[in-house]
C-alpha cells in the first residue's frame, strides 16, 4: 500500500555527525557489500572495472567546503547522504504499484523489488536523491536501514545495526529510535542541535545531522608567525652557506639541456 500508515511511535533512523565524519567511504563500501548479497538481489555495477562505472549505491559521501561569514579561511565537511526514512515520504505515495511502502511498525521506507515496475517516479519525488535505479534489474533500489540486520537473531548483538553504522571508524554514525525521546540518538540530537535536511520541503526526515562543532580559536587564529632573525654572525654565516649550496646544483643542472627541474613546482 502506498498510502502512508499513521505515524509510528517507533521511528528508526540514523544520526550522522558531520563533525567527526572523515569521509573515508567505509560506510558506503560496507553498505554496498552487505546489500549486494541481501534480499533485494545483487546491487550490480555495470562496467565495474572501466571508466564509465555505474550502479546503485545507497550511500554517497559528498565533500563540501564551508566558508563562514567574515572569515578568509574555510573548513571541509564530509557529508554522507542516504535515505532519511521520512515521516511523509512522497516517494511512497506517488508509487503506482504499492512496491514502495513505509513500515507501520518502525517507519522504515522500503521498495519491494518483486513488484516494482521501474517507472522511476519515486526518484523524481525524492528531494534527497535517495532512490537509485538498478539498470540491470529494472527496479528502484534504496537504503533499507539494514532491516535484514537489525532484527536478525542469527547475528551477534553488536552486529544488529546497519552496516554503515557498524563500519564507521570514527563513530560518526548512530542508529536508534528517534521516536523515543529518551533514546541515546534523541539525546544526541538534543545536545548537539541535530537538524533536518531541506526542512522547507515538508518531508519530515527521521534521520538527523549533527552540525560541525564551533571551531577552537587557537586554530582559527592561523599559523603562528615564524621567529624573526636576530642578525647574529652565525645566522649570516648559515644564510651565506645556504645560498651557496642552493645555487651550486642549479648551475650544474643547467649544463644538461634535458633538465627541467627549475620549471617544476614544489
Amino acid at each position: 500500500m502506498t498510502t502512508l500508515p499513521a505515524p509510528s511511535a517507533k521511528k528508526l533512523g540514523l544520526v550522522i555527525d558531520l563533525d567527526t565524519c572523515v569521509g573515508c567511504q567505509a560506510c558506503a563500501t560496507s553498505c554496498k557489500e552487505w546489500n549486494a548479497q541481501g534480499d533485494g538481489g545483487p546491487l550490480t555495477d555495470t562496467d565495474a572495472q572501466g571508466a564509465d562505472i555505474s550502479g546503485p549505491w545507497f550511500n554517497r559521501i559528498h565533500g563540501y567546503e564551508v566558508r563562514e561569514d567574515g572569515r578568509d579561511d574555510s573548513r571541509m565537511v564530509n557529508f554522507p547522504r542516504s535515505c532519511l526514512h521520512c515521516e511523509t515520504p512522497a516517494c511512497v505515495t506517488v508509487c503506482p504499484t504499492g512496491a514502495s511502502y513505509k513500515r507501520a511498525e518502525d517507519g522504515i521506507v522500503l521498495v519491494n523489488p518483486d513488484t516494482c515496475i521501474g517507472c522511476k517516479l519515486c526518484s523524481w519525488a525524492c528531494p534527497y536523491g535517495a532512490r537509485e535505479y538498478d539498470y540491470t534489474q529494472g527496479v528502484m533500489k534504496k537504503c533499507t536501514l539494514c532491516v535484514d540486520r537489525i532484527y536478525n537473531d542469527n547475528l551477534v548483538e553488536e552486529d544488529r545495526v546497519p552496516a554503515c553504522v557498524r563500519a564507521c571508524p570514527t563513530g560518526a554514525r548512530h542508529f536508534g529510535d528517534l521516536g523515543d525521546e529518551r533514546s541515546a540518538v534523541s539525546q544526541l540530537v538534543k545536545e548537539r542541535g541535530g537538524f533536518d535536511l531541506l526542512p522547507a520541503m515538508g518531508y519530515k526526515p527521521t534521520n538527523k545531522y549533527l552540525p560541525p562543532r564551533a571551531r577552537r580559536e587557537t586554530y582559527a587564529a592561523g599559523v603562528a608567525p615564524l621567529p624573526k632573525g636576530d642578525g647574529s654572525v652565525m645566522e649570516k654565516l648559515f644564510s651565506w652557506a645556504d645560498k651557496l649550496l642552493s645555487a651550486a646544483p642549479k648551475v650544474e643542472a643547467r649544463a644538461n639541456p634535458q633538465d627541467n627541474s627549475d620549471k617544476l613546482e614544489g
Binding site: A28, R67, L197
Partner: peptide, 17 residues
C-alpha cells in the same frame, strides 16, 4: 538548506567519479 551548512557552502569533492 540542503546541507544545513550555511550560505558559505560550496561543493568541494564529488562522491563518485
Amino acid at each position: 538548506a540542503a546541507t544545513g551548512l550555511g550560505p558559505g557552502v560550496r561543493q568541494w569533492e564529488v562522491p563518485h567519479t
